[in-house]
Every structure is written in C-alpha cells, then in structure tokens.
Amino acid sequence: MNQGTPVQRKRIRWRELVGISLSRLVLVVVCLLTIFPLLWVLTSSFNIGTSLYSSTLIPRKLTMAHYINLFRKTSFAIWMKNSAIACIGGSMLALSLTVTMAYAFSRFHFWGRRYGLLALILIQMLPSAAIIVAIFRILQALHLLNTFLGLILVYGGTTIPFNAWLMRGYFDSIPRELEESAYIDGATQWQAFVRIALPLAMPMVAVTFMFNLISFYNDYILASIVLTGKQNYTVALGLRSFQAPYAANWSLFAAASILGSIPIALIFYSLQRFLVEGLTKGALKG
C-alpha cells in the first residue's frame, strides 16, 4: 500500500524500524535468559574443579577429566544402556501393539468404534500418578519389579491411546483408493494393510517411535517405582543420585547432563518439523 505522501511513507518506515529493533532487543534478551542455564552446565562440565562453588560461566582452564571420570568412577555407561533398553523396548512394544489398532479405527466400521475412540481420549489423559500404586502392586505380584521387562510392559501399555490416536489420524490421510484397487486385484484385507497402508504410514511410525523414545527417556515416576536396584538405574534415576551431595559432584553431574542430553536433542532437532506438528496439532483446533 504505497499511498500517501513521501513524508508519511518515511514516518511509517521509521516507526517500523523502531518496532523491529525493539522486537530484536526483547528476543535477544529472552534467548540469553533461555540459554544461560544450559551454558553454565556446559562450561561447568569442561571447567577444572569439581564443586558447584568453583564453577564459573567462563572456564578458567578446560579439561576433559569430568567426562573421563564419568566412565571411570560412575555407572553412567550402564545407565545409558539401561535407558536405551527401556526406551527402545517400550517404543517397539507400543508400536507393535498399536499399528493394527490405529488402522482398524481408521478403516473399519465395527460395533463399539465410536465409544472406543472416546475411551482412548479419556485414558490418554489418565495421569500415571493415579494408578502407580496399583501398577507397583501388580508388578510385585508378577515378580516383575526391578526388571526391564516390567518397565517395558508399563511403557508400552500406557502409551497405547496416544499412539493409536496419532497414527489413526495419519491413516485417515492416506487415500483409501490405493487399498481398494488392491482389493480389486484380489488382495485380502491383511495384505492390503501390510503391503499398501503400512509402508505408506512408515514416516508416521518412525515419528511415533521417536516420540515415545523421548517421553520414556524423560520419565522419572514410573522408572522410580519399577526399578529399585541401583544397577538397573536409567539416566534419569542415576542423575538424581548425584543430587544428594550436589555441590560436591557438580562437574560430574554437568558432564553427565551434557552426554545424557545430546541423543535426545539430536533426535528432537532432526525430527523437529514432524514432532512439533504432531504435538501441536492434537492440542490446537485445526
């Protein structure tokens, strides 16, 4: 809209410039506040000295000692391995239990479909805190306490509604005509699902897998009641065990936080577009 006299246009441009500079200022300050804590942890992990008190934002002298000690003096490598087992196992279980379910909800008409979907929404919001006591008691009775199998079962089972809802939406977006033409060629329902719909849904399967991986990695409450033995600690439980004499173990903790965060941050940023879409789409009105 380039109407108005040159003087008016200049005034508008000047006002825009002030507005943009102010936005920039606010954004830069917020960015600094956001990365300040992370930066402090990062530099602590390379700084000489081990305690919280000796940590500084700008390291006085760089060292890799804390990273080396992490593997020499703590069970960090075991915690990482444990987290990997629980997260990958749980995600694979959750997926294998839900792809067919999501497909059925997307493609078939059957008695109970509507109420099933409504039940999924409700159960999805059920806070794990509400049933941890019962989960603890049941795993105890099954002798699955302090086993990865127990934790994987809990992870895989409790995320079904969320996974099913997410993947059903993706199956809905795959045109039915592809399967219908397969039927004309004589394919059975199962063949149409395995050979046509499932390969097309693979991107969503991968995203859902990563999604679960991140949320299981972040879990503290379930892991803490299922895994009680120290040798079975996940990263979350292990890092908490540094907390007691926090000030003394700070540098080790910092190094462990950095190494423990890298895999998750890498997954998050590489899949950012899909993850963000998947999460916000459910929460926003389309």
């Binding site: 942890v41 919280l52 979350a236 907390q243 926090y246 936080s257 998750i264």
Partner: peptide, 13 residues
C-alpha cells in the same frame, strides 16, 4: 529439545 528430567536437576544446582 532437552530431556526435562535432566534440565530440572540442573536447575536445582
């Protein structure tokens, strides 16, 4: 993007 259990513990320090 960071695992929140880890960042919360870091904040505690």
């Amino acid at each position: 993007a960071m695992p929140s259990t880890i960042t919360i513990l870091a904040w505690a320090g």
